[in-house]
């Protein structure tokens, strides 16, 4: 599908979500640009995952509208791919089977013959550095490798929008840094914006959000609501040197100040 420049890829208008009488998210309005890497940070209970589930079509908003390319989101679709926090890999499928699952069984593989599907799976496995592990099952893989499989499964379907829910939260610090760079590489940060896919990336890590994103949406909690949208004007391509700059530290600190009080309150409650 062609996207008109300057039109938002996704538009949220006064979106609210209630679970019974509990307000998970209150009146969120937000435009997500095509090709943008948007990170969402916020303390527990700020409705981050709720936003993502609604964008995925897994949950329905209680009020407001969510538009994708100008049309309301009615349910899940192959135009959006989700990477879950808990990997959600199919334990009975090998690495190859997991990566190719959507192509083999879903609409993403429509119009591709077997050879084309296999070629794409092989390319994706290469891209996420899982070569040699094709025939292994998830229980035989380390946490970092499982996360690569989940990433591979997401991008093999070539969705226009990548929705990622704390995808690196379960990993150790070193693996997380490595995978951050891979996500940027796969997102094609060295290409012009028109070549990129749209990413919505939920994270607890402020550093991670600043390192990856074009903009960081800061949510507050109880009820979940928009606190601020921070432009991250660090140059691309970003790399290890980016983390050492004063601008990086300033941005991280200012975002931390926005959520510090609530984050501290969340730890004592």
């Amino acid at each position: 599908m062609m996207t008109v420049p300057n039109e938002p890829k996704i538009r949220l208008e006064h979106v609210g979500k209630m679970f019974d009488s509990f307000v998970a998210l209150d009146d969120l309005s937000l435009d997500i640009r095509p090709g943008e890497f948007l990170a969402i940070v916020g303390p527990s209970g700020s409705g981050k995952t709720t936003v993502l589930n609604m964008l995925a079509g897994l949950d329905r908003q209680s009020s407001g509208t969510i538009l994708l390319d100008g049309k309301p989101i009615a349910g899940p679709g192959p135009d959006r791919g989700v990477m879950f926090q808990d990997y959600a890999l199919f334990p009975w499928q090998t690495v190859r089977g997991n990566v190719g699952f959507g192509l083999t069984h879903g609409p993403a593989g429509a119009g591709l013959d077997r050879a084309a599907r296999e070629a794409r799976v092989a390319r994706v496995i290469d891209l996420v550095n899982l070569g040699g592990a094709e025939e292994r099952y998830p229980h035989q893989l380390s946490g970092g490798m499982r996360q690569r499989v989940a990433l591979g499964r997401l991008i093999a379907n070539e969705p226009e929008v990548l929705l990622m829910d704390e995808p690196l939260a379960a990993l150790d610090a070193q693996t997380r840094l490595v995978l951050q760079d891979e996500i940027l590489r796969i997102w094609r940060q060295d290409q012009p914006a028109a070549e990129r896919r749209t990413v919505v990336f939920i994270t607890h890590g402020i550093d991670e959000a600043v390192y990856l994103a074009d903009r960081v949406v800061v949510l507050g909690s109880r009820p979940g609501r928009l606190k601020a949208i921070v432009d991250v004007d660090l140059p691309r391509p970003r790399n290890e040197a980016t983390r050492a700059t004063a601008a990086f530290a300033d941005l991280s600190r200012s975002i931390w100040e926005l959520i510090r009080d609530e984050a501290i309150r969340a730890t004592v409650e």
Partner: peptide, 14 residues
């Protein structure tokens, strides 16, 4: 069944 597996399949439009 782990619900997230069903959700994962749903998000792939299966």
């Amino acid at each position: 069944i782990d619900r997230s597996l069903i959700r994962a399949a749903r998000t792939m439009g299966i």
